[in-house]
């Protein structure tokens, strides 16, 4: 990819930004190469607050609609906000239908649309709800002058904590009637949340669920994350949630867990990007090597 393209991207040309993100995604350029081309001295801001925030939660709780409202609110305050919206790739064909954009109406608001960038991303080969290359895409967007980057994960389950590896803050979105109080006690994603939003507060059971969550957090050690009620569909609670999320601090409850996720994600990326991967899969499928042998080869402990 040409230096002019990268320079144009850093200077805010949207088409060049889109092309550069594709370049990163396709492995045609690395973040290091971009850093060399970009004049790093133009980094205008210092960041004591967060830059990237992952919004995660089960399918259908209203992540996209909530994000639409956050985009409009934050861009309305003058912040430049990028959204990386992730949907799954088919494990069978590699194809993907990326439909998060359908819910995003903030990009049609003439007053703020220049401050909003939305990009749909397929998980491709990665196993988790967020491909690791997204962390490089976030860094690049920051270099290109975007203030905040929202990552919308694939609708995820209780144990899906991979987004912890790449985002500065994690917001878990819940809905009403998501099970009894015991659900809130179970281990997993909620333990890593820096804030929890119970969306669809216009429906029965939302307040009760929020109370159960608050109670559960107070039984644990450390500072409890904020639990907020919103209704993305009628706007209730959005102003408060938008302000609170801009200010949330790292809950600090999960530093080790985050590094664990980063380590696992990096390890997986190394395997997926290995030149030997296809060859090893053929050998495994044919039964000529064991899983342990395959790991040794990929880990460089054994040459074959």
């Amino acid at each position: 990819m040409s230096d002019q393209l990268i320079e144009a991207a850093i200077n805010g040309n949207r088409r060049s930004i889109a092309r550069t993100l594709s370049g990163l995604e396709n492995g045609q350029i690395t973040l290091d190469q971009i850093r060399q081309i970009a004049d790093v001295s133009i980094l205008r801001k210092d960041y004591d607050n967060w830059r990237s925030i992952a919004i995660t939660g089960a399918p259908g709780v209203g992540k996209s609609c909530l994000i639409d409202k956050l985009l409009a609110n934050w861009a309305g305050r003058g912040l430049k906000v990028a959204l990386l919206a992730i949907d799954p790739s088919s494990p069978r064909t590699g194809g993907a239908l990326l439909g998060d954009r359908v819910r995003i109406t903030a990009i049609d608001l003439v007053d703020v649309k220049d401050k909003i960038y939305v990009r749909s991303i397929a998980t491709r080969k990665s196993s988790g709800s967020v491909p690791l290359i997204v962390s490089d895409m976030i860094e690049f967007l920051i270099l290109a002058g975007w203030d905040k980057v929202i990552i919308e994960t694939v609708g995820s389950g209780q144990a899906e904590v991979r987004c912890a590896a790449i985002a500065d803050r994690i917001v878990v979105v819940e809905g009403p009637a998501r099970g009894d109080g015991v659900q809130a006690e179970k281990a997993g994603l909620l333990e890593l949340a820096d804030a929890v939003i119970v969306n669809k507060s216009d429906l029965d059971g939302a307040e009760k669920h929020a109370e159960e969550l608050i109670e559960s957090f107070h039984l644990g050690l450390g500072e409890a994350p904020p639990v907020l009620l919103t209704s993305a569909i009628n706007g209730d609670g959005i102003a408060v949630a938008s302000s609170t999320l801009l200010e949330i601090k790292d809950s600090g409850r999960s530093n080790r867990a985050r590094w664990r996720e980063r380590l696992l994600a990096q390890h997986e990326r190394r395997i997926l990007e290995s030149a030997k991967l296809d060859e090893i899969l053929v050998l495994l499928a044919a039964g000529s090597i064991s899983i342990i042998e395959a790991l040794d080869i990929l880990g460089g402990q054994k040459n074959e």
Partner: peptide, 16 residues
């Protein structure tokens, strides 16, 4: 059409 393209291994962005 979107589904056909997806099943052929492409990444399809549907606008609504």
């Amino acid at each position: 059409v979107a589904r056909t393209l997806r099943d052929a291994g492409h990444e399809v962005i549907y606008t609504g």
